[in-house]
Design a protein around this nucleic acid. Structure first.
Length: 573
DNA sequence: GCCGTTTTCGGCCCGACTGTTTTCAGTCG
């Protein structure tokens, strides 16, 4: 039996959680979490590791209990240990971990003392003030839990772009294999590269629509079927994402694609524009009276309406139509414009792969340069580098540079300390090619204090990039309070580069603020913030964000050749 | 549970914050 690596990783994490609930030794718990993380970051697939015996040699997995469990999972898809542990606690307890402030200890108390097994039961217990009777809980924590549940409900049914995009790709691949498919596209918010997705829209034209709908509702990943017709069907996938399939005639495809790509706001605005010209738009065509205006593709539709074509990412009705009507719409940055990457972590701090592997992978991916930036010394939780280890890393980079064509820039992701200082003395900072300043602590400062903190840090001449400017985690955590307009204005003055953190959990700077930053003439950079080899692929999501922010290649540092980048990095010194 | 080695068992990241306490436990990054 061939088992998905992700399944094994998930099981190891579940074992860790269950052991924690059982009050097991925390280091034992961590051993499982570590093993999951190590496996996740390992470039080789599971079959190769298991069958060559390489698995047992991996540091952190070893030849004991954990590797036995992995073998078991690989062979049978299940594990005796996990099954036995699972029997001790209801599966719905896992959901409670998503509520901020609740960890294994307190969840165990809730379960054992109040019999709470699910988020719904917890919410009810809070309404009844039942938590107040528990030791270690008070009015304040009950209130915070209620808030956490509200937040959870708000993000329920929402998915990060990478999750939805991967799901849609698999589904589209499956549908493409059906007979008689003429055209197929993923439309909707995924096509527009929105940072958070509610559902997947797939558009198909086919010779035999009914059989495509039949195949659709029988997709192996289907959890339930909401609707099953000859032009429209809806299913819910096992991952929880709702997915709609629309089929149209081949000659209707461009209109339908435009219609189902949205956004709704863009569509309303474009219909209003068109109406003034006596043209009606719907998913089946452009019509003047009852006569259809023939368009061969979306670009053609825009042209027939008198607009410069607008890329899907920019269709949010934030002024794109006005610009396109004047034929001034910018030529947006593309993934192929990206020449190099900054903000990459290695195993020297909290990355999953070694410096050597990261450099190799970036070079093989065709990047001209890479900016390595591990965490700085205050980031104890992330194994941040104190000067001694920093110097060792520099030595290794120098040695690697001799063997590699890719230009390696030495950098750091320096914590911006609460008082606005950077995390090393200026004499050390001067030795870096670049410094990414970022906030990782004391998120709860007032907006005024936080803004001052960051502005002060930006005043340091070695401060090159401002990393993940709001600290938000999409669907997870609001960003800290900060006056971004002030920060961006200051970045312009001080020649600081604003990061577009391309990790799909962040996508920070937000695309809406990219538009502002571009207007102010601030240079930006699409940074993967990669902690693994997979993380290098996140660049595409950053490009999506940049395109939503109307950025052109000239607005983005890492589309420039290495020599020019080198000059820009030195411009504050 | 894994690692490293002082080869038989101790160490494993740790400081800040929060809410509950009255000196600390749990959570988080």
């Amino acid at each position: 039996m061939k088992v998905d690596k992700n399944h094994v990783i998930k099981c190891l994490r579940q074992i860790a959680v269950l052991l924690e609930l059982k009050n097991e030794n925390i280091f034992k718990v961590r051993a499982f979490t570590n093993a999951a993380r190590i496996l996740e970051g390992h470039p080789k697939d599971l079959a190769a590791l298991v069958e060559t015996g390489e698995l047992e040699k991996i540091k952190g997995i070893g030849s004991g209990h954990i590797s036995r469990i992995i073998h078991e999972l690989y062979d049978r898809g299940e594990s005796k240990d996990l099954d036995e542990l699972s029997r001790e606690f209801p599966a719905s307890l896992f959901d409670l971990f998503q509520i901020p402030g609740l960890g294994a200890k307190r969840i165990k108390v809730l379960y054992e003392k109040l019999g709470i097994k699910s988020v719904g039961e917890l919410e009810y217990a809070c309404q009844e003030n039942r938590l107040l009777e528990l030791e270690g809980f008070g009015a304040r924590s009950q209130e915070k839990i209620v808030q956490g549940i509200q937040q959870l409900k708000k993000s329920a049914g929402h998915y990060l772009i990478h999750v939805a995009a991967e799901e849609s790709k698999r589904l589209a691949t499956y549908l493409k294999k059906q007979k008689g498919i003429l055209k197929i596209e993923v439309a909707g918010s995924i096509r527009r590269a929105k940072e958070v997705i509610k559902d997947i829209d797939i558009l198909v034209s086919a010779k035999n629509p009914a059989t495509v709908h039949e195949a659709f509702v029988h997709y192996p990943e289907t959890e339930s079927v909401i609707a099953h017709g000859d032009t429209k069907s809806s299913i819910v996938l096992k991952s929880g994402i709702q997915c709609d399939l629309r089929t149209v005639r081949e000659d209707e495809f461009p209109y339908a694609l435009y219609y189902f790509t949205g956004s709704k706001e863009h569509n309303v605005a474009v219909r209003t524009f068109a109406k003034k010209k006596g043209i009606k738009i719907n998913e089946y065509g452009l019509f003047r009276g009852s006569r259809r205006i023939v368009c061969k593709d979306e670009a053609d539709i825009f042209e027939k309406l008198g607009f410069h074509p607008i890329p899907p990412e920019a269709r949010e009705n934030t002024g794109e139509l006005e610009l396109a009507a004047k034929r001034e719409f910018p030529k947006l940055i593309e993934e192929k414009d990206v020449r190099g990457i900054f903000h990459v972590h290695t195993a020297d701090s909290d990355g999953l792969v070694s410096l050597d592997e990261m450099i190799d992978a970036a070079e093989q991916a065709g990047f001209e340069y890479i900016g390595v930036s591990d965490h700085s010394q205050s980031a104890g939780y992330a194994n941040g580098l104190e000067p001694k280890r920093l110097r060792l890393q520099w030595k290794r980079i120098d040695a690697l540079q001799k063997r590699h064509k890719i230009r390696i820039f030495k950098g750091i992701e320096s914590d911006i300390l609460p008082d606005g200082k950077l995390d090393y003395s200026d004499s050390i900072l001067a030795e870096f090619d670049f410094v990414i300043g970022a906030v990782h602590s004391r998120f709860n400062m007032s907006e005024k204090e936080m803004t001052q903190r960051i502005l002060r840090a930006m005043g340091n001449r070695y401060f090159t990039f401002f990393g993940h400017p709001t600290g938000r985690l999409l669907l997870g955590r609001e960003g800290y309070a900060v006056d971004l307009v002030k920060i961006i204005d200051a970045a312009k003055k001080a020649n600081v580069i604003m990061e577009i953190n391309a990790n799909p959990h962040r996508l920070d700077l937000d695309w809406r603020m990219c538009q502002y930053a571009k207007k102010q003439g601030v240079l930006m950079s699409i940074n993967p913030d990669a902690h693994s080899l997979d993380g290098l692929n996140d660049v595409k999501y950053g490009v999506g964000t940049a395109r939503k922010g109307w950025l052109e290649s000239g607005d983005v540092l890492n589309t420039f050749p290495a020599a020019q980048v080198e000059k820009i990095l030195k411009r504050r010194r």
